[in-house]
Amino acid sequence: MTLLKVENLTLGFDTDEGRITAIDDVSFELEAGEIMGLVGESGSGKSVMAKSLMQLNARNAVYSPTSRITLHDDENGREIDVLSLTKAQDLKVIRGGSISMIFQEPMASFAPAITIGDQMVEQLLLHTSMSKREATDFSIEMLNRVGISDAKHRFKQYAFELSGGMRQRAMIAMALSTRPKLLIADEPTTALDVTIQAQVLDLMKDIVAEFGMAILLITHDLGVIAQTADRVAVMYLGKIVETGSVRQIIRTPQHPYTKGLLNALPDLDDLGAPLTPISGDIPSPLERPSGCVFHTRCSQIIEGRCDVALPEVTDVGAGHGVSCFAVTSSVETSV
């Protein structure tokens, strides 16, 4: 069942230097019980996209009129038009109700002067009909569930008293305790060590199986994606350039950008292999390239085409979509 549908999302920020396009005509769907990975370099618009699902972007954000984000709430059988919500009362549904978010830096996302427990209870009182006592018991149970030992004691502690991995677990427990339909995880393991990262990723996978929720996993680490996600969307300068199942993207990437990202990774099985960087830097959003946004760094550029026109999404098989002229023309010639 489709849980979330994003259609033609276009989003800009009004600044002194003019309007900066952050997301350009992005559409995708997310099924219940699915983990979708969103990868791309810094500045590609991953976090802005995630924030627009909860309307958390800054006040100068401007959504185009064609943008539509629909969230299906199967319990009441109703559809929520996310972008039309304005009142605080209504926004509660997408902010912590049906959608929860885990942030990259768990130290920065907990209030430093309030205990972990009080923060967990507060959101439960806001979003559910639990009494304070029920909320306390439930929060401690959630802390136990995510593998925090001595949860009763931790419940009364402050964020600074917990280690990095423990804080991220508490963050996950807090995000899950309202039983959201969709969990947005924005670089949840970037600040953690590999050994702790493995623990947190396992925990997230278990939770999807247990609660049947969907996860939008934002990361720049393709290894994390390969081990966790079911489907992948690759973003570059506010556009999704390639989507497909995790196997399609990792094994048979089509877009030159996806190939470039994979080639830039050090390969542990072949230590002598040279690293291939993607030439150049991601352009400033103020100087968006014309045509295909990637043409300034692309190795397969077709002059007179890539820098002029915008490539359409081509289906190269079984839900694997690519926006690239080089791929389209090779598909055409082979047909």
Partner: peptide, 18 residues
């Protein structure tokens, strides 16, 4: 440490030592 590095192959045998 070595086994905790996420492998790029989604079907790689899960031998991670937790």
């Amino acid at each position: 440490l070595l086994s905790a590095i996420p492998h790029l192959d989604p079907d790689a045998e899960k031998t991670a030592i937790k």
